[in-house]
């Protein structure tokens, strides 16, 4: 069953940045894109399970802090080696300046 989880306030994340969000034993990354939209993905890189929260957001790309692998965080697409497996993404909505993510 899917549910919307209140993850953070919109101003908790700087533009072109991300934060870590943990919920029910799972960890996520929530992004604030340069166009003002918010996105959410699985928190850990698909290469070596390093958390992406310390990574660098460049436009719509998140770069893993350990090996510099890159994903498009809007789609989860793996963009640069050493990552080969896409990142799981989650639906996001913003209500009353709060960011919600939909998790299974």
């Amino acid at each position: 069953m899917t549910q919307w989880i209140d993850a953070c306030a919109t101003d908790d994340i700087d533009a072109e940045d991300l934060i870590r969000f943990d919920h029910a034993g799972a960890t996520y990354a929530i992004y604030h894109a340069p166009d003002g939209k918010f996105y959410a993905t699985a928190g850990k890189c698909t290469h070596e399970a390093v958390h992406l929260a310390d990574g660098l957001v460049m436009n719509y790309v998140i770069e893993c802090p350990k090996h510099n692998g890159q994903f498009d965080y809007r789609t989860g697409e793996a963009k640069r080696a050493p990552v080969c497996v896409n990142l799981k993404t989650y639906p996001v909505k913003v209500e009353d300046n709060r960011v919600f993510i939909q998790v299974a």
């Binding site: 290469h47 070596e48 350990k66 090996h67 080696a81 050493p82």
Partner: peptide
Amino acid sequence: WRWSHARHHT
């Protein structure tokens, strides 16, 4: 070597 260096960092 792109991959060996990734392992070197891991």
